[in-house]
Amino acid sequence: MTSASTRQPRPLRFGVVAPITKDVPAWRDQLRGLADSGYSTILMPDVPEWQPAPGPALAVAATITGLRVGTWVYASPVRPAWSTAWEAHSLTVLTDGRFELGIGTGRPGIADQLRGLGLPDVPMNRRWDQVREVVTALRELDGPDLHTPVAMAVGGPKGMAVAAELADTVTFVMPHTETRTATMRRIRDFDNRRAVELAVHVPVIGDSVAPFMAGPGTDPAALRAADSLAFLPSDPAAATEEILRRREEIGFSYFVVGADAAGALAPVVADLAGQ
């Protein structure tokens, strides 16, 4: 495997998962604030109960902010592969290439969601085939003149293999209390010979927990005690040191946080984005 220390570090960038949890005017104001803080990407989760559909919301976000936008992440069993690919390609066209397709196999408990929608519960070994079908259809729609970046959320060996072959960005699905050592071992097992971008999903900043990025009952103290990579300190100096350490030691260059904690990290983002 290719280690982070043997290649040129990628410039840092920062994304914000910003679902519409309040009224739409308040969400628009939130987006404008994020655009002024140095964040590069506005991201939307794929959870029907929480908000409007990601595609239209991201089209609005791209217009308001001028930033990159993306899904974090589409669940492959929820819609046909061609439909996901068509929507992704359309967003790339409508945003002048500022859309990123985030995709995975679904959140824990997605079987209940699928039953509620009247959809079949696709076996896990089939879900990664669906992801491959999405990317294949997307590349056909994009043609030779476009390239919609694809971010994959992966956990097991099959997901890692598909991502190693097809993804532009990879984020790793891991228990929030997983130790730094265990996470580093997980990432060393990933075949990153193509030097794809490595992203880390950070639901906890200081004592602030993003409820749409972390499970119920997430305890910031437990994450700190585990030296978990799902946690960043709220102190700007400490957060800066930790972000640079993660890039140097592991190769993470893309940090994704929740909207409620984005303000606390804004000074760090302003200093580090693009470096």
Rank of each mutant, 00 (worst) to 15 (best):
A153Q: 07
G217H: 04
W128N: 04
P267M: 05
A199P: 02
T183Q: 14
D260S: 15
V135Y: 10
R188W: 11
R185P: 01
T179Q: 07
G159Q: 06
R194E: 11
E242N: 07
D168S: 07
R224K: 15
T136F: 08
V162G: 05
A164P: 01
F255I: 05
A225C: 08
A137Q: 12
L146V: 11
D189M: 13
R245P: 13
A195K: 14
I205C: 04
G251V: 03
Q130F: 06
V204D: 08
I187S: 00
Y254H: 14
E242M: 13
L232Y: 05
G215F: 12
F231Y: 15
P233N: 05
E140N: 09
A225R: 15
M184V: 14
E249G: 02
P233W: 06
A230I: 11
N125K: 15
M152F: 09
H176K: 11
R224I: 13
R126V: 08
D191H: 13
A153C: 04
A151C: 14
A167R: 03
D142V: 09
G217W: 04
T136P: 11
R126E: 15
G217R: 09
S234Y: 07
R127I: 01
A222W: 07
G206S: 10
D207T: 04
D168I: 10
T171G: 12
A237R: 14
R132G: 11
V131G: 06
G206K: 10
D121L: 05
A199T: 00
A151Q: 14
F212G: 04
D207M: 04
S228Q: 01
N192W: 04
P236Q: 02
I205F: 02
G206T: 07
E248Y: 02
M174W: 09
V268S: 02
T169Q: 13
V170H: 09
A264N: 05
D145E: 15
G258C: 03
S208V: 14
D121G: 00
I250P: 00
L146T: 11
F252Q: 10
S228N: 01
A230F: 10
V162K: 08
D168E: 10
G156P: 00
A261L: 00
V204L: 07
P220C: 05
R224A: 12
D260V: 12
V134Y: 09
F172C: 03
E249F: 03
P233Q: 05
I205P: 11
T177R: 06
R193S: 15
F212D: 12
P233S: 11
G217C: 04
M160K: 14
F255S: 01
V200D: 03
I187T: 08
A199H: 03
A210L: 04
P123E: 12
V202S: 14
P175R: 15
S208C: 12
H176Q: 13
D219Q: 01
F252P: 00
F172K: 04
A137I: 00
I250G: 02
F212A: 08
G251E: 11
A261K: 00
P220Y: 03
T183V: 13
A262T: 06
A199C: 08
D168A: 06
R132F: 01
V131T: 12
V170P: 00
P144K: 03
A137T: 00
V131A: 11
A199F: 00
G251H: 10
A137W: 05
